[in-house]
Amino acid sequence: MAITRCLKGKTLYMFGDSTMRQWFEYLTDFVPNLKQLDIYSSKQVGPFIAVDSTNNILVSFRGHGPPIRSTSVFASGPLYVANELDRLKGGPNTVVLISVWAHFSTFPIEAYIRRLRHIRKAVMQLLNREPATLVVIRSANLQKVTTVNCVSNSDWFSVQIDAVLRAMFRGISVQLLDAWEMTLAHHLPHNIHPPRPIIKNMIDLILSQICVK
């Protein structure tokens, strides 16, 4: 299958929130012979690992460090993305996917700026070590408007976060996946967890970057 040939020999590291976990779940459902290993992780924040040993494909997901609004976790569980990036060797067969936004919309914007500054520094150090590493940053996306989130967690907060994200990674050799525009342009209803057809479009766009050769 074309996707297996594309990902052969590749390692995909996914860091972030549940909108990134959707990508992991899509790939494990869609890529033939990519099997998730049961390592007794939290169902929401991971870590998760899936492998295709025949084609030397490894895909992993790890939730970002606090703040986390979705579930209770061990303090030693979710690690900071910047620290995880510092452990990566990188290289032409390494793909790093990052999504950090949703859990910060109910906190002062200064907290988000500080977090992104650390991630930005770690990304730059990774690219200095191995410039051929593909790094993809996922933007925020639109969500369903409800009585609750229109007051404390609406798209008004998300669009401010999105502006900070774009400014922080401008001028760096990373790819921005514009989830905001992709959800805005699609006919399906807005949801903080975009429906599967939109996830497919996002993965197809990432694969177009991985499979350029």
Rank of each mutant, 00 (worst) to 15 (best):
E25C: 11
T4R: 04
G16M: 13
K144R: 14
R62F: 13
F157Q: 11
G77N: 12
G65R: 14
N83M: 07
L127K: 13
V135H: 09
E181F: 10
G77E: 10
M202F: 14
Q125K: 13
I192C: 09
M124E: 11
Q209M: 13
Q36V: 01
V164T: 02
F157T: 01
I198F: 03
S60F: 05
L85N: 06
D204T: 02
V164G: 00
S60W: 06
V96R: 02
T147P: 11
V151K: 14
D52S: 05
A132G: 08
N153D: 15
C6M: 09
L34Y: 11
L176W: 12
Q125T: 08
R87N: 10
L7M: 03
P195D: 10
S76C: 06
R129I: 01
F48D: 00
T133H: 01
I161E: 05
S105I: 09
T28M: 08
S41P: 07
P194I: 05
L176G: 04
R114E: 09
E181C: 06
P197K: 06
N93P: 06
A82R: 03
G91Y: 04
E110C: 02
A50C: 00
D52G: 02
P47C: 06
D204K: 04
W156I: 04
K35V: 13
K43W: 13
R120T: 01
Q22K: 12
Q125N: 14
P195V: 05
